[in-house]
Design a protein around this nucleic acid. Sequence first.
DNA 1: GTGAAATTGAAAATTGATTTCAATAATAGT
DNA 2: ACTATTATTGAAATCAATTTTCAATTTCAC
Lengths: 145, 145
Amino acid sequence: MKTKVIEFERYMEEKGLKSTTQRDEIVNTFFNVKGHVSIEELHHTVQKKNPKIGYTTVYRTLKLLTESGLAHERQFGDGQARYEAVTTEEHHDHLICLKCGTITEFENMKIERLQEDVAKEHGFKVKNHKLELYGYCKKCRNEVK
Amino acid sequence: MKTKVIEFERYMEEKGLKSTTQRDEIVNTFFNVKGHVSIEELHHTVQKKNPKIGYTTVYRTLKLLTESGLAHERQFGDGQARYEAVTTEEHHDHLICLKCGTITEFENMKIERLQEDVAKEHGFKVKNHKLELYGYCKKCRNEVK
DNA sequence: GTGAAATTGAAAATTGATTTCAATAATAGT
DNA sequence: ACTATTATTGAAATCAATTTTCAATTTCAC
Ligand SMILES: [Mn+2]
Ligand SMILES: [Mn+2]
Ligand SMILES: [Zn+2]
Ligand SMILES: [Zn+2]
């Protein structure tokens, strides 16, 4: 997405950071890849375009994207961080298929409201939350016991 | 809890595993410690009773407890696994304080039901889920901006 | 008691994340 | 354009948590 790339350039500018071929290629690739991508996966994809780009630079660029608010880092149960482009301001939660790994997004305002109620009951101030449903997607549910 | 220890012994028996002093001490300590404990914390506690017990054995025993369904492994954002005794069959979710680390438990049937609704809408079969609210507890919320 | 089989724990290996550092590249000022 | 300053790169090193290895020890069925 072009506007996202421009927002990233603005963030770099404002932080006094330099523009480089590597960053451009990584950021462009990131915004053109759908879904929830690991560092390794993105590195692999980026290398098809430019085999000289190192893992570390992908790691650092994803960190910048996260700091700038243009990406979210997610931890689903598989041990490695995954990143997704922040498209709208809308929060969403996830359904994760234990068989094929497909990640589906959803929003449910009723749940969000009830979470706030729960927090209030405990005098707790919510900063962020994580709601993940693990199980089997439409495709896989028939193939598994 | 004595009944839990007996359930563990039954599981060991049924798996053809042997009973050892180390396992007994680790399991006993685990069921007498409240809350959500890391391997390192449990190891430290166990060592007060018996300094010869190694980290690895605590690790392996917690794994057995998890396999047997008597403990749950949890991942809150701090990078290390935490374990809690499964006391009732009741599921619960967590409030995690970002300042003092306190973990509070809650149950909310309305949320659970809505989760099922969401899953159904997507043809998804939920196996388990994770709902974590991160923020500041009653004690800490005033000390943080 | 004896012996096969399991357990222990220190050390080594693994994994994903993060840092280091010398070489390279970007850019502001001339 | 040239140069000096400063940031960036990426391979390798480090880190922290977890997991495996393996030789010595312990358990328990017979
Ligand atoms: Mn998402
Ligand atoms: Mn709990
Ligand atoms: Zn699936
Ligand atoms: Zn607190």
